[in-house]
Nucleic acid binder design. Structure first.
Lengths: 113, 113
DNA sequence: AAGGTAGTTCGTTTTTTTACGAATAATTTT
DNA sequence: AAAATTATTCGTAAAAAAACGAACTACCTT
């Protein structure tokens, strides 16, 4: 029987997942838009962003799949907003990741010089 | 004359850049390793990670290009460590990005429901 | 019932990412 | 000088991401 050894920790996978969601400038811009207006329609965003409608839908899907946003679908309109809980979770996860690696928390500092 | 309109802000590009650097679990694992030991050689990491040597080099290059790590090359060995300044900068950039979007700082909260 | 509106999905192309082994470079050891 | 060690670069293949227009869905108006 083949044992599927897990390659990375759950936490590492999650960090990569959330990071990947914001690893494209247009998705960063989308989140900026959503935050500045509390929420908005696909069409509102489409006006501000230099991409085709279908491409926007794809990026929204990436953010939605990662859990960072949610869509209130109400044909023919869809209103998007930030998913507060997950967003806060991702914020803390990434913040901890970065902070935990800074010099003050390492044995030595400026190790490479 | 063609005017190259910039599509995204400098900040949005930077956020995406740093996020992209940690958008793969192996790169998250690399940073975890570097942080836990202050620094280490390519070979040390190669033992811990389930990827080929050449693939590891590639991922190290991505992290180095993003500025998150630096390499002390000293053939045939190379010692890597976290780039403290840039790392701290990235931490703050991402932290601000996320925190600035949370409900308390928006006009309304739970906008989508 | 036709037509309009707003988004999504589909099909396709192009580009980028990830991965590996083989070949290469730069020391150190024998 | 030859061989060993350690890591990078090269060449290539496979997979994933990004982009677009066309086709489609699901309501709302007329």
């Amino acid at each position: 029987m083949i044992v599927e050894t897990k390659k990375y920790t759950e936490k590492q996978e999650l960090i990569a997942l959330y990071a990947n969601a914001i690893a494209h400038p247009v998705r960063v811009a989308i989140l900026d838009l959503l935050a500045s207006q509390a929420c908005c329609y696909h069409g509102d965003m489409a006006e501000e962003l230099p991409i085709a409608n279908s491409t926007l839908s794809q990026h929204l899907k990436v953010l939605k799949d990662a859990g960072l946003i949610q869509g209130d679908i109400n044909p023919p309109k869809t209103k998007y907003c930030i998913h507060q809980e997950n967003y806060a979770f991702a914020e803390e996860l990434l913040s901890d990741f970065f902070k935990g690696h800074l010099a003050s928390s390492c044995g030595e500092k400026g190790s490479c010089n």
